[in-house]
Write a protein that binds this DNA or RNA. Structure first.
Lengths: 158, 158
DNA sequence: CTAGGATCTAGAGTCGGCTCTAGGTCAAGC
DNA sequence: GCTTGACCTAGAGCCGACTCTAGATCCTAG
């Protein structure tokens, strides 16, 4: 069995994860890795494919708005090994709820945005009768202090 | 007809929009209002229902991730009055695209999260055969790096 | 031998979007 | 008259998540 232990430099990992080398060092410093990053000659970081796989998960969790402390908590649990699956499940379920809620909120916002787009389209092209339905809180814009949370998930690229 | 011009204090507006008084002053300072906020005796801010309606729109746009500069741009256009509807439409369409993309990204993330939740559920309740399908690009990434042993793999510089 | 490039550490800086503080004005109630 | 509370301005501070800098080390190529 040829131990194909991939040995990647920080630059290579940056390249294939999309994270910067700075971010990789930062993540390590923040304790987000499951296993300590190995070091090669000269104290240089050496990453395995498992590290890259873990980072891929991290990136997805981050992209969906999980804050670093929660990610660190999750990494801690995985690092501790079997036995804490319930806690991991709880953590994941909570995050799932967050993401689901966020998607719902965005969908609501999208409703207003679509409505606005429709209004301007009609205005610029009055021929086509506009029949936009908007099952959202736009007519009653003055209604309730809808609890919309500003500033939640920030996702790559932007 | 009785002039029903609602005159609201900053505190009242804060209360019914959910924004803080600090945020309201900040938004004004940032030029996010369509019309200049009136002032009452003692230089106190006086808001109309229109202001509140506009803020409601702002809140929704912010909640969907529109950055302040874009919001300011939109306010500028509205302030300038009729004639720039195309630009407003463009702005709104761009934002619509952003939000749609963001929802898509979050949905993808949710796929991994659901998968993870499923894995842990099965692990804790092995009776029910779990058949989770994950129609996302994550099968390999979701592999559990539980207890990864890092041998004394030496990194030969080669 | 020397230059270039990737890496290292520790720590400072950046950015967006508020949030808070300090010091002051003003109107109402006791 | 005095206190309280809402409001004012200008500007400082905060938070999260990086990003960048400085100065050093090390490897490889020419």
């Amino acid at each position: 069995m040829a131990e194909v232990t991939t040995n990647l430099s920080i630059g290579q990992v940056a390249e294939r994860t999309g994270l910067s080398v700075h971010a990789l060092r930062f993540y390590e410093h923040e304790g987000l890795f499951v296993n300590p990053v190995r070091r090669g000659p000269g104290g240089r970081r050496v990453y395995s494919q498992d590290d890259v796989d873990w980072l891929t998960v991290c990136i997805i969790l981050r992209a969906s708005g999980m804050p670093l402390p929660a990610l660190r908590r999750y990494a801690d649990l995985v690092r501790q090994g079997a036995g804490n699956e319930e806690e991991r499940l709880t953590l994941m379920r909570e995050h799932q709820a967050h993401v689901t809620a966020q998607i719902g909120r965005l969908a609501e916002c999208l409703d207003l945005i679509r409505f606005k787009v429709g209004v301007y389209e009609d205005l610029l092209n009055p021929d086509s009768a506009g029949d936009h339905q908007c099952h959202a809180p736009i007519p009653s814009a003055a209604a309730q202090p809808t609890e919309i949370r500003i500033g939640d998930a920030r996702v790559s690229g932007s």
